[in-house]
Amino acid sequence: MPAIWLIDAYRAGERGQVRALAEAAAAALDWPLETITPRYRSWAVWPHLFRQTSLAGLQHRSRCVFAPPWPGLVITAGVRNEPLGRWLRNASGGATRYIHVGKPWGRLDDFDLLVTTPQYRVPVHARVLHNALTVHGLEGQRLQRAGETWAARFAPLPRPWIGVLVGGDSGPYTLGRRAAVRLLEGAVARARDCGGSLLVTTSARTRPAVSEVLERGLAGSGGVDACPHFLHRYGASPDNPYAGILALADAFVVTGDSIAMLSEACGTGRPMALFDLGGMRRDAGAASGAAGSVDRRPGAALYRVLMRWFPQPLSRDITLVHRALVDAGRAEWLEDVGPVVAAPGVRAAARSPDLERAVVRICELVGAAPPGNDDCR
């Protein structure tokens, strides 16, 4: 029986995507799944920068893993792992099908399947699956269990519960103190309008200064009236409520920098409000773009130059995702949202349509998908 090799991604957002896709593909095909965690040579950058087909970027011990019997599929993400996927495809004589998730750096013909999203502006191609949002594994029984675990912790807070998912700096956008104040004011106003509470969690990319603004403000000492809330600072406790918030919140406010958080919140089917870090919302009259309310960062300015003057494949534009979600009625900007209505109970989201489409394409790739049947087995 062929195996699936998951070459684990080295960034947290991509890691969640490739693991979800690999696990779903393994379940659909009934193939064993093996996870490889590469160790890279710090100075070996040319294999991925120059689109090589090589293991030269790996430490010697990691290279030894890449040996027969070859897998039927290899699934991975990230520019460092592209040379590895191409190498496996060639070394196996084409028997290994190479699935890549997210941004491509190599030629599209180098992949057997690329699963991507609008922000990367990848052209239409026979080997590309364009999904609206990223694939993820926060659904079904996993979400159900998380909701049951956290329901008692959140129970003392008045409903509706508004989940606030906080990211961080990304490309041309900066989540600093000014943006944190605006986010807090908007979220508290929304909770106050419906008599509800905030369930707030920061993430690995959230600056400590932003967490401090949120903590002081929610306690009533940061220029914002106190609000019933639960606040989790990422890394402060081993108990991460993120999945529980996804399972239980009646609505969401999500910072617009993270497509992973947008995808997971949108996958619940409950109302989602996008928070503009500054410059994301391009329609006229967005208050968040007012002078003095946007955080400045040299890296953000350089990224804007990159987007404007350099080839598109070198950057990403997450506003294309925002626009698609708003146009499809799947999200609104925080300034435009209506009242929140409580809908108590642990609700398990079904598998996301983006993940379903990706699994079906993988099944078709290996000749295991009956026409018109999403079950590949």
Rank of each mutant, 00 (worst) to 15 (best):
Ala9Arg: 07
Pro228Leu: 05
Val224Ser: 06
Gly106Tyr: 15
Asp317Arg: 11
Ala243Thr: 13
Leu49Phe: 10
Gly94Arg: 07
Val321Gly: 03
Tyr40Trp: 13
Ala146Phe: 06
Val341Ile: 12
Asp257His: 09
Leu165Cys: 02
Asp239Asn: 12
Leu29Cys: 04
Glu34Ile: 06
Val340Phe: 01
Arg192Ala: 11
Trp43Ile: 01
Ala22Arg: 05
Ala22Asn: 08
Arg377Met: 04
Ile259Ala: 15
Met280Ile: 06
Ala22Gln: 07
Ala67Asn: 12
Arg61Ser: 14
Gly171Cys: 11
Glu82Val: 02
Trp333Ile: 09
Leu198Cys: 03
Val65Gly: 04
Asp112Pro: 06
Gly223Asp: 03
Glu14Val: 10
Ala265Leu: 01
Phe275Val: 02
Trp161Ser: 03
Phe66Ser: 01
Ala67His: 13
Leu218Pro: 05
Arg19Leu: 13
Ala191Ile: 05
Tyr10Phe: 05
Pro71Met: 09
Cys266His: 14
Ala342Arg: 13
Leu108His: 04
Glu335Met: 02
Gly140Tyr: 05
Asp257Ile: 10
Leu277Ile: 13
Thr149Tyr: 09
Pro68Gln: 12
Ala301Cys: 10
Asp193Glu: 15
Ser42Gln: 13
Leu262Arg: 10
Ile4Arg: 01
Ala132Ser: 13
Asn373Cys: 12
Val79His: 15
Ile318Glu: 11
Glu212Gln: 15
Tyr120Asp: 01
Ala12Gln: 15
Ala26Met: 02
His100Ile: 00
Tyr120Val: 02
Met280Asp: 04
Arg177Gly: 02
Ile75Val: 14
Ser92Arg: 07
Pro38Ser: 01
Gly278Arg: 10
Leu199Ala: 05
Gly244Glu: 07
Pro208Ala: 10
Ala243Trp: 14
Val326Ile: 11
Arg177Phe: 00
Ala132Pro: 14
